[in-house]
Nucleic acid binder design. Sequence first.
DNA 1: ACGGTTAGTCGAAACGCTTCGACAACCCCT
DNA 2: AGGGGTTGTCGAAGCGTTTCGACTAACCGT
Lengths: 358, 358
Amino acid sequence: MATMHDVARLARVSVSTVSYVLTGTRPISQATRDKVLAAMAELDYQPNAMARGLASRRSRIVGLLMPMDERGLGATETAFVTGAAAAASAAGYHLVLSPVGVGDLDDLRRLASQRMLDGAVLMEVQVEDGRVAALQEAGVPLVLIGRTGDTTGLAYVDIDFEQTVRQAVEHLVGLGHRRIVYVNHSAATIAAGYGPAVRTRDAFVAAMSGHGLEPVMIPAEDSAAGGRAALTAALDQAPDLTAVLAMNENAIFGILGELAVRGLAVPHDVSVVSMVTSPQVAELATPALTAMTSPGSALGRMAVEALLRRLEDGGDDDHQRLLPCALEIRGSTGPAPRPTAAAGGGDTVPTRSGPPGT
Amino acid sequence: MATMHDVARLARVSVSTVSYVLTGTRPISQATRDKVLAAMAELDYQPNAMARGLASRRSRIVGLLMPMDERGLGATETAFVTGAAAAASAAGYHLVLSPVGVGDLDDLRRLASQRMLDGAVLMEVQVEDGRVAALQEAGVPLVLIGRTGDTTGLAYVDIDFEQTVRQAVEHLVGLGHRRIVYVNHSAATIAAGYGPAVRTRDAFVAAMSGHGLEPVMIPAEDSAAGGRAALTAALDQAPDLTAVLAMNENAIFGILGELAVRGLAVPHDVSVVSMVTSPQVAELATPALTAMTSPGSALGRMAVEALLRRLEDGGDDDHQRLLPCALEIRGSTGPAPRPTAAAGGGDTVPTRSGPPGT
DNA sequence: ACGGTTAGTCGAAACGCTTCGACAACCCCT
DNA sequence: AGGGGTTGTCGAAGCGTTTCGACTAACCGT
């Protein structure tokens, strides 16, 4: 493994000159630069990351901290990662993904104090997230994907849930739906203050009220069974529902299954919109789901770019940016089954059309 | 940020003594050790990772290299990651996930030559995988999850596809199924030599032949549409099929959708087994899928443990280990619809029972 | 013709740790 | 009593960079 000394010797210059060629911190004549670059090429020189990090006190590593639960990473999260990795790599940084859960704060603290990370991007931020404080105490610059409750002085990028929900509701209302049920994450998740769950809830209430409609909301466990239960509850509470808006990517398959069991055809009897869903998942269903596609890769890129800007400029540029999901219409939404004669809502299950199936 | 010097001064010992307390490379008296530990606690000392890495020429970082395509990480891959991370963390190593695709070999080479990784675990190994050579040239010890074509001198852990397929086939045959179709990954993937696709194909042929049955195999694109097309092709080729064995986690939802469209009930008319599938995904379907659950977290743990053993002992312990998937019976398999009167296979579509729907 | 910049280069001192050689002190055999 | 091990500690020499201060030479305006 060639070192800088070897390069310097071969190029007949001093070590510091080689360093200046590499870092560009001081002017170097073209002739010298060429000699040095030639020597580096000949020796297949690669700077030693540890030595560089020690001397410069900057590792050129940024961490992407994502809690990994057993559910796995959806395509949405993966898009974050690839977007972030691309941005980091383009800037000459390494992006390391660290599966630190919200639980192992000590692990995180250790990681941070070891000066191995120049900065960090946090995924899956909770409204009360100990990781934020831990990193701030350790002096690690950070950018969130998502938001904590109090965002003052914090840099973040997040999905614009408000606009996303509004757009989804408008799509359904535009198709004539008046009785729309929102299937959120579980009650526990909402109570825990999980940002997307809380914010979409509020946004749904606002959007429905804006249309003069009553917001019906049902929580659901993150599973197919949870989805089935939620749909049952939804039909209890609003037997005349014609559309379901679901935040819960796991529950949605249960919802679809239960609809099929009850002989309700999608989208003929009930329209379904899936929120913050990747095209890949949307296509798994039959018919493919109309969904609000999350701007995953853009979010990842923006987060890393904001972080690097703050690292290089040292500026406390409080970057706060929201991106809405894009409405992608597929086969699961259609016109409301019948003109909403009485918006008050009937108390009997209306006659449904057609045979079961799909 | 306290350094070792500070600790040494406070404890009234030399710097090297502090180091020995930390690394245990030389005996230290209990009294001294206590003094040093007390000083470390008081100063909230954390060793500087860069300095340690530079001096010891070992970063205590192992990389988990996983190509991240847009499909995202399934629960199976996520289990690899969590298993690996847990094992690394238990041994005092950091696991960094690097989303290096098979494409950016130069990126990988750079990463490797920068001496930032003590070793690497490769996921999603191709039969011809340039990353293996790149890492070997850079002198980075590695362990594969999956296998290349030629595994001599390579350490790996992998799924025992042979046994997994055999067990799945036995389950179906035990239920009376004789006409079983295997839906593999796409033809292109198989042609590219993707290990799981190739190995399951061979294993399926062997298992079916072992039972005196004809192996019918259909490739499918990794999407719901691919699954639908595959089922259509399967019914063309084997109209009397009573069971589908699917390797393709994405296609399986298309298969189920198409079965429903055709009015074939699962498991009444057709049994479905999903291979190398996580419980989470299996539960998404209605009915939940009987599946061969991959030993993801165990594989990840074993891979890291093998890697660390090789790092610490320096031993060229050619760790090669296979783990089968576990059969988990859920609702998608049942007895074959009718006794296989003539195993030769009919040439007309037999009458199917019952109404459509789940 | 002369001080004042600026461009280009060098040597040496960090950076915070590990590790090697040395050495004192002690213990155990014979 | 003297040699051979251990045990426990220290000082110093790296590890491969970056970065600071210093120096030379060329160039500027006056």
